[in-house]
Design a protein around this nucleic acid. Structure first.
Lengths: 173, 173
DNA sequence: TGGGTATATATGGGTGTCAATGGGAACAGA
DNA sequence: TCTGTTCCCATTGACACCCATATATACCCA
């Protein structure tokens, strides 16, 4: 498939916005490399940093991921607020252990694309997600996740079952 | 890993902004030298002062750190606030005994990079953080921390546990 | 509409280069 | 002279970059 380099879209604030769609299962080679789906790469093609940010999900056995812009934006917003609000203690000491942003920053990895559009999955992340030799990329809109095949299949089935039950009180036909 | 010299990014005020990401554990050699992670150095590569500012955290057994630009920006912001607010006493006599900024300034060290991108951790800081022969660099967005391995592992686990509980009232599924 | 060809994606592997680290020589201050 | 600091060079292991291949599909042309 040939994927078109995707024109950058803007959100309300005039910032770039990438959308990740669909699910892909790719091979992890013996060096720990895995191809990021071309469609995802196309969504990030306008970004200054060619690669992704990845961190362990706090709720799932999966890796959470998005473009660097997302982090950058959170970081800037946070710092500006503190500075302009005169909250210098926050700048110097941090938000204490109450800040999700700071926790995620510490666990996040910057994964640049190689010439072929692959990334290297750090051992810590693979371990968290139980990823061995296959990685499933799951588009979640402004984010995507990376799962090991089996846990994802299970999770997917659970999600579907749950919604089916909620929507029509039992099996769709 | 080869780290790209990182293009300087600007925040709202048109100032440079560096983002510190990820966690790295580096060796402290017998001379007290530690390599600052290449990614952090890249984030500071545009700065006029090649090195970092470091001071003991007032809330954790850790060292807090960032580039000199951050200090200057904070000072400037603080000064303008005082001036514009007509708080000339503060400018001339200091913010009184409750000024975190001034307390931190006094405890801060300027640590220049050597040719290999290492810094020397002052004994006082090492002692405060309990650092012996390993230093863990923890990215917190606009700043980073330096911890001894064991206390950081504990702290990290605490943070994650707390957010997990807040998010779904229990462990990952 | 069908077939053929070009191209991009996903993948595998080799190698030069850089980051992290260690040690020694030059140097300054006490 | 002795101690501590700064600069320089050597080592090694990881990985960034290069090239090479197969498969699928987009596109062209008859």
């Amino acid at each position: 498939m040939r994927v078109v380099p995707e024109l950058p879209r803007k959100d309300h604030g005039g910032r770039n916005l990438s959308t990740f769609l669909s699910t892909y299962s790719n091979k992890v080679d013996r060096k720990g490399r895995v191809s990021v789906p071309a469609a995802y790469r196309a969504a990030l093609s306008g970004a200054s940093f060619q690669g992704v940010i990845a961190y362990p999900s706090l709720t799932d056995l999966a890796i959470e991921s998005f473009g660097r812009e997302m982090l950058e934006r959170m970081n800037q917003e946070r710092l500006s607020r503190s500075m302009e609000g005169g909250a210098f203690e926050e700048v110097l000491l941090g938000g204490g252990n109450d800040s999700v942003v700071e926790t995620v920053m510490a666990m996040a990895h910057e994964l640049p694309f190689d010439g072929e559009g692959r990334i290297i999955l750090p051992a810590a992340l693979c371990e968290h997600a139980g990823i061995d030799d296959r990685a499933v990329f799951v588009g979640r809109g402004s984010r995507f996740q990376i799962w090991a095949p089996e846990p994802y299949a299970k999770r997917q089935a659970d999600e579907v079952a749950k919604f089916r039950q909620r929507l029509n009180g039992g099996g769709a036909s």
